[in-house]
Design a protein around this nucleic acid. Structure first.
Lengths: 241, 241
DNA sequence: AAAAATAAACGTAAAAATGACGTTTATAAT
DNA sequence: ATTATAAACGTCATTTTTACGTTTATTTTT
């Protein structure tokens, strides 16, 4: 491409997806492997990320990084924090890895998280794997910290904004929404109360469709209307300290 | 100091203070002035900020920047966003300014906001001035954007966390808290309902003191107990989408 | 074709929180 | 002693939340 990299600034991306079968909030991680003289030096997982180019905005870098990994564009993303501790890449393992790479003076990284529909990614085509956010494997660099901070931000944000629907298929059941909230927040929610609350929202729209291929009573499908939500100008300013 | 600056990373600080007299949420800005041949080239205000040193964490840079301006340490701060558009310093005025300075390749800035008590700052000692966040002067660089994004983040955050007390004196009246919420959120709140709600919180503690030197019925003074608040483990997970 | 199993969906009543008001009280200034 | 004024208290209707028990629709099994 011939674009000039800014060597000590990178963007790292925490990609979240929800598995409706296992009811697990997952993170997409990339295998990192290095051996020399039959000795395994590095064998773990890391986030996807790359240097910022000089002509790019940070958002563009994040978009590019996601697209290079998954092929996906126009996904929901949020820049949530910058990480710049001088020792953030100073673990023994990471130093070995960095030595082996060309340029890796990524002193400061701007971290984003993405919310997308698991089904949109074909794992066979890419060198990455989903892991439950509550059961992460060995993670390199300071990326475990980054993942956990992304997760905290997501927990906060899903309480006040309807970003949860970015993680669900366009047509979903009430119970799927409940499962997702329960997974993210690690809480139990009463189904009858949750159901009533959600169905009463004008932007939760019942479709003329039910689940198919399910081995019990098929559930009603719903969709989220961003248009209606936006029109309602949902800033309720409830002070809940 | 002889510390190595990271040239294209800086930290900028939005310093918020609340004026209980004018009931205004204010931002601390620094005068920027440059003239050549009797012609005023730059005459506006900017945030306080500086390059990151290589051995510092981002938090340390922010703390240092605030201390250098105000002498204050241990103030509440939040890193809220990084700004890295390639053209963020490309206004004509800013280019003139940058040309006149030594190193100013601050491509990416990590922005923090601070919440502090206005009275802790002696304006006579420093070259800065308070401005109402809703009535900003001419602001240089992309700092107006940064201020407004800090303000949005503050609006959000004060709804779910008791950070508002960082802006008030240790001993405050109920009405001062109300005034502050009203200023930040630009809303009117019913005093009787607000008062009831706040007084019922166990971490809002009535003191054996009243206002002094006030020309009407002096109000009861209260304090916020962070200890009690933390013990209550106030995560109520109210889904309010 | 009937019965069983199961997840979806509905309902109700008490408790808590909120919203919208009117009234009283304590203090400083007159 | 009186007045002016901001602080502080109180009440009732409405809305929201919490905590449960019951019914219904569909698939699978018999």
């Amino acid at each position: 491409m011939g674009q000039k990299k800014i060597l000590n600034i990178s963007v790292d991306c925490v990609v979240f997806g929800f598995d409706t079968v296992t009811k697990s909030l997952n993170v997409l991680l990339i295998k990192r492997y290095l051996e020399k003289n039959n000795k395994v030096l590095v064998n773990d997982y890391v986030l996807t990320g790359y240097h910022k180019y000089e002509e790019e905005t940070l958002d563009q870098t994040a978009t590019r990084v996601l697209e290079e990994l998954t092929g996906l564009k126009n996904q929901y993303k949020k820049q949530f924090k910058a990480f710049g501790d001088p020792d953030r890449l100073m673990n023994e393992k990471d130093l070995i890895w960095i030595k082996n790479e060309e340029f890796n003076l990524r002193t400061v990284t701007i971290a984003y998280y993405f919310l997308l529909k698991t089904d949109d990614i074909d794992l066979n085509k890419i060198d990455a794997k989903w892991f439950p956010v509550n059961k992460l494997p060995d993670v390199g660099f300071d990326h475990k910290k980054i993942i956990l901070e992304a997760y905290e931000d997501l927990k906060e944000k899903c309480l006040s904004e309807p970003i949860i629907f970015k993680l669900l298929p366009d047509k979903f059941t009430i119970n799927e929404v409940q499962d997702l909230y329960q997974s993210i927040l690690c809480i139990e929610i009463d189904n009858r109360n949750f159901r009533r609350k959600l169905i009463n929202k004008k932007y939760i729209i019942a479709l003329d469709e039910k689940q198919v291929g399910v081995s019990k009573k098929p559930a009603q499908l719903y969709m989220f209307s961003k248009d209606i939500y936006d029109k309602m100008f949902q800033k309720n300013y409830l002070i809940s300290i």
